[in-house]
């Protein structure tokens, strides 16, 4: 379709050009029409040749470049009235802390947001205090450090992007605060990516040095290796820590990080739908009520008696 339209454009341009030259020599009308036909034919052949040459170098968008489409999983929050599974978020934070946090930051999440979602106030306070933050300088102007507070954001593993790249052979581990919203397929994609590392890349695939193969990652070659292995973490609630269990929990946690308003949003949405639909029905009834008299009235015309 595309190539055809290009061809038409090229051909018609060439034809227009030959036409213009032909117009200049309108006196020799008979010979110029012959010239026109030859010119158009020549342009057509040239365009076909160019197009064919181009098609030899063109790279089609292959399945590998798109990445394998992730399947849909039965997430606890699937459905209009379903909340996140907060026990899963709690386990997911543990997986993030023990596994992902070695490379990935979570810049946009503050400690306080975890309170009442996955941890108690005192737990989060203790977690925050384990990290050091820059404090106001003392009276002599020397920089000081202080333990973290609830209002601080969760610190990342690297001080800046350069340090992150230097530690990962030039690849930048993306910030995970909004990763579920930032990737096509959302939670399904994240889960598939984490569990989808095959033992061997498909035969014939050549990977750059240091890269790993993951079919769900567009292009297939991903800097992150497989990180989740069975029994990598030990859950406090005794859940067996299989690879897919950890992947589910951490994805649920990251989905919460992307959409912290999720549970409240669905509750408010339910209220809004009930109120707005009843108000709509009420407005329909009011309209019918008001118009009933107008719609059912009858006009009669009694012609005056003609005077004689």
């Amino acid at each position: 379709m595309f190539s055809k339209s290009i061809f038409n454009r090229v051909a018609s341009k060439a034809a227009a050009r030959t036409m213009a030259t032909a117009a200049g020599t309108s006196a020799k009308a008979a010979s110029s029409s012959k010239f026109l036909i030859t010119g158009a034919a020549l342009a057509g052949v040239t365009a076909s040749g160019l197009l064919y040459a181009d098609s030899l170098t063109a790279n089609a968008m292959t399945a590998a470049e798109h990445g394998l489409h992730s399947p849909e999983f039965d997430w606890p929050q699937n459905g209009p009235f379903e909340t996140f599974d907060h026990a899963s978020i709690r386990r997911g934070y543990q997986v993030y802390r023990e596994v992902c946090a070695a490379c990935h930051s979570l810049d946009r999440v503050a400690w306080r947001t975890l309170v009442g979602v996955s941890h108690t106030n005192s737990e989060v306070k203790a977690m925050a205090e384990e990290f050091e933050y820059d404090d106001e300088p003392d009276d002599d102007g020397n920089p000081k450090k202080r333990p973290g507070k609830l209002a601080d954001n969760i610190p990342g593993p690297y001080p800046n992007e350069q340090a992150a790249r230097a530690a990962n052979q030039g690849a930048l581990p993306p910030d995970l605060s909004l990763i579920v919203k930032a990737r096509h397929g959302g939670s399904d994609y994240i889960f598939s990516l984490l569990t989808g590392y095959p033992e061997e890349p498909p035969e014939g695939v050549v990977l750059p040095v240091g890269a790993n193969y993951n079919p769900y990652f567009p292009g297939g070659s991903i800097a992150m290796g497989r990180v989740l292995f069975d029994d990598l973490v030990e859950y406090e609630d005794g859940t067996p820590a299989t690879t897919s269990q950890m992947a589910k929990d951490v994805t649920q946690f990251l989905n919460w990080a992307s959409e912290p308003e999720h549970d409240e949003r669905k509750r408010q949405g339910l209220k809004a739908i009930i109120i707005l639909s009843s108000l709509y029905l009420l407005s329909v009834w009011v309209k019918k009520f008001k118009w009933a008299g107008i719609k059912t009235r009858k006009f009669t015309f009694t012609p005056p008696k003609p005077r004689k």
């Binding site: 292959t62 399945a63 590998a64 394998l68 989808g196 035969e203 014939g204 079919p215």
Partner: peptide
Amino acid sequence: DCVEEFFHLQH
């Protein structure tokens, strides 16, 4: 390469 065959199987 066998990416397509691999994708069909994985899918």
